[in-house]
């Protein structure tokens, strides 16, 4: 047991979030299944099995509308913090460090280390691609999730339209619908609020021991320090 704990401790943060992600996804599927069947029953329709629900457009849309907004949040946060700073926030770089940074700061060119990633040691397109690989990956997951939300949301919306004796929409019509943008904006605004709050509140508030916080005794005006 002790040996197992020693092995997982170095990756405990990732395992913790992976674990609670799995638990809450299952919890969402169970709650969503019950809510879906409540609506089916209210419309005098037949309840569906759990397997039918977790493979339905309704579940896919509910899941991906949240995923896309989370990845957009990090996409913007990663990109914006290159160029924007906030005095006193541990989430910000120092006020005079705006921009991409020098090769020395980025450990590139003649400043690479022996243990630097191989694509960081490379030149040309591989180094350029690797230099933005986090942003590109977050962006790709965001776009893919948003696209699935669009397609699955379209199918779920049309199913509800038919239950309500109304005409279904085309995929293009759904893209301009209030339902699509309501699902989208309700998630975006909450993510932007959470990130903005984190940036500003961490100027004045502390959590002892967390790298997301400044040290408890750090002055409010001190930027780019982590506890």
């Amino acid at each position: 047991m002790r040996a197992l704990l020693d092995r997982i401790r170095p990756i405990g943060l990732g395992l913790f979030f992976g674990g609670i992600f799995a638990v809450t996804l299952i919890a969402q599927s169970l709650a969503g299944w019950n809510a879906f069947n409540d609506e089916q029953t209210a419309a005098h329709l037949f309840p569906i099995s759990y397997l039918d629900y977790v493979t339905s457009a309704s579940f896919a849309a509910d899941v991906t509308e949240n995923w896309q907004s989370e990845y957009l949040q990090f996409l913007l946060f990663i990109g914006a913090t290159v160029w924007l700073v906030h005095r006193g926030s541990p989430e910000s770089k120092d006020l005079d460090e705006v921009g991409r940074g020098t090769d020395e700061q980025q450990m590139l060119g003649r400043h690479v280390r022996k243990d630097s990633p191989s694509w960081a040691k490379a030149t040309g397109w591989r180094r350029s691609l690797y230099s933005h690989s986090l942003l590109w990956t977050m962006g790709a997951i965001f776009v893919a999730s948003w696209a699935v939300q669009w397609i699955a949301g379209h199918a779920a919306y049309n199913e509800q339209q038919l239950i309500d004796y109304q005409d279904p929409l085309t995929l293009a019509e759904y893209l301009g619908s209030a339902d699509f943008w309501n699902r989208t904006f309700q998630n975006w605004q909450s993510e932007f609020l959470a990130v903005g709050s984190m940036v500003v509140l961490s100027v004045y508030l502390r959590e002892r021991g967390s790298p997301e916080s400044k040290p408890v005794g750090a002055p409010h005006a001190e930027t780019n320090v982590e506890g």
Binding site: Q40, F46, A156, P168
Partner: peptide, 23 residues
């Protein structure tokens, strides 16, 4: 004929039907 999930609409020349999956 369009089917979305467990609901469908069938347009005929003289009528329109709405259907639901029943098992």
């Amino acid at each position: 004929v369009q089917a979305w999930g467990r609901a469908a609409i069938v347009e005929l020349d003289g009528d329109t039907l709405f259907l639901a999956r029943t098992g």
